[in-house]
Amino acid sequence: MTSHGVLVIGGGIAGVSAALALTERDVPVTLVERDAQLGGQASSVCCKAVAGRCQQCGGCLYAGQLQACADQTRIDIQLTTTVTSCNPSEGGFRYTLCTLDGSLEGTASAVILATGFDHVNARTKGAFGYGLLPAIISGDELERRLSEAGQAAFDTDEPRQVAFIQCVGSRDEQAGRGWCSQVCCRYGVRLARLLKARSPNTVVTVFRMDIQHCGRDSQAFDLAQKEDITFVTGLPAQIQRAGAHNEQVLLQYDDIHAGQYTSLLADLVVLSTGIQPRADAAATADLFGLERNAFGFMASAADDVRTAVPGIYLAGCCQAPRSIADSIAHARRAAAACLQDLQEQPA
């Protein structure tokens, strides 16, 4: 197998979108995915429509792209495959893939890296007791359970206190995590509305530093405030087990507006975890000769998509945290930059 097309690494929403954008311009693509299927992390994002009304979360954007990619016979999709070497040669790249059937060699004129991100492990924020108490779950767990079991998974008629704690494992310079994950305010507020709308006896409190409501999709946030979802400025300082069987948790926090120390007894606590660089990002960067930024995401030029190595481009969350829609847009720009450089290259 040799190809003079583009090698796209990572079959998440960013890789799939980049591959599609290149195919639209008649460039042959080899798409390499480590897993047995395409889709990446976006496939566990649930639909957050409240009573049939779309909340514009972007969760359903990935299905269309994935279908289009599967229908596109011109994309050479290599599943359960990784790249073992990739070196510049003769104005392009020579690479080796490790597949289930052994290794494959090929050449490509350019490479788009779309290796994505890891979920923040909620355990990194030890004080919040994730993994110790059943009432505490992480945002990615809630997303996954709602998308696998359907929106009814957390329904109840009983009175219930639900607390969302934002910025878990993000915006925390002391822990070396001084970035905002961009997606967790958006999914957090939408999930808060969803849980409240499905179970009217649920009371929801969102603990946050600042809600990221910029851009035009702030409607969910405006509606949440009208629907009696309480926003508390500041994160709980302490979480303790409570209830006869530790089925509840007691959140203690400083209410800066009331000017006093207060507590809340919650039945379900959602830790809004965000996006962090993949554990193997250093190895991937080395393989392609790329630099990483201060936080471990792949370093890009000022345009967000080109890198220090000519011919290698970045797409999606491997470069910075972003939503599904933003990942698609970013991947399209990466593909466009790649095409533009290829056209300018003397043949």
């Binding site: 915006r171 970035w179 905002c180 961009q182 530093m209 600042d210 990221q212 930024n293």
Partner: peptide, 27 residues
């Protein structure tokens, strides 16, 4: 500020760096 909007372009880091350089931030 009332709400700091730092979700894009590593603004969270720029705010931290400014704080370290002596710029005060208050709500």
């Amino acid at each position: 500020y009332r709400e700091l909007q730092v979700d894009t372009d590593w603004l969270e880091k720029r705010v931290r760096d400014l704080r370290a350089a002596g710029v005060a931030f208050h709500r």
